[in-house]
Amino acid sequence: MDRLLFGDNQFFGVNHMSEDKARAQAIKFQEQEAIVQVLDSAYAEGINTFMCTTHEQMIGICDHFRAHPEKYADFKFFPCMPYAHKYANAVTEKGMLGAARDMLPNQSIVNSVLKAGSSMVRKDIDHVAGLLVDAEMKMFNGLSTPVVFLQNIVVDLLLGLGVNEAFKIFADYVKANYNAQPGFITMNLPRLATALDEVGVDSPVICANFNKIGFRMCGSIDEYRAHVEKYNIHFIAMSVFASGALAPKEALEWIAKERWVESVVFGASTPSNIRNSKETLLNADAQFA
């Protein structure tokens, strides 16, 4: 994985600090062209990986990258699935099964279960899980996706429920069908690291908040360090600026000292912010190497 990965929250109206800022960003990035311009700026700075939610708006972005293979020769996507609001709204509107039916490209399984009133068996569940992954991955067809992530809302839900086997199902499926490393986003890294080890997902890629004030990190900074090392995790730090609570220089210099952090994912909306973040981290890296 590259040292710096480019994130997408700024494009899709997500700001954990302020609704107003989120709205302003959503307005700025309503047009796909505006997103592509920022991605081009990142690419020009040598940031070749876009870690992105499987948001509907990504369909057009993917089309753009597919249409210009020569321009983006070594550009990579790290898809993060699913885009949870889509499912949550569908569940509110149609109930659990109605939502599953809507989201699946092939409805035969859900329909047959409903029609027969039969119970779902293990192979059905594996199959449905696979279909859901396929539905989310469709937009990336033909693009490079070396790591495929499960979003924190799903990871942490399964983790809380204790349905740890699902992690193994996901991991095996993306390895076998997309030749990709399975990735997991979480707010509860120590607990997840233990759970993945228990079900035999070895050396996983985990992306979690990591910042000096411990914002949205369940478990202490020391526990994060200890678990990443113990379980040989490929760790991506996110929310390194703690949603704006930390100054970029202070935040990135702190991260650079944590040499076990493999990658840092960050979002930015302007070429100058992208350049500043990159230079700050790489300079700090050189200092602490």
Binding site: S119, D156, L158, G160, G162
Partner: peptide
């Protein structure tokens, strides 16, 4: 369910719903 189950003082031991296939999944995996 997830939050209560993850709580250090609690353990979810029973789940009641009218949808059989949902219960099947839950019983099998949690």
């Amino acid at each position: 369910f997830a939050l209560a189950n993850a709580h250090p003082d609690a353990e979810v031991v029973a789940v009641c719903d009218t949808t059989r296939y949902l219960l099947d999944v839950v019983e099998k995996y949690a």
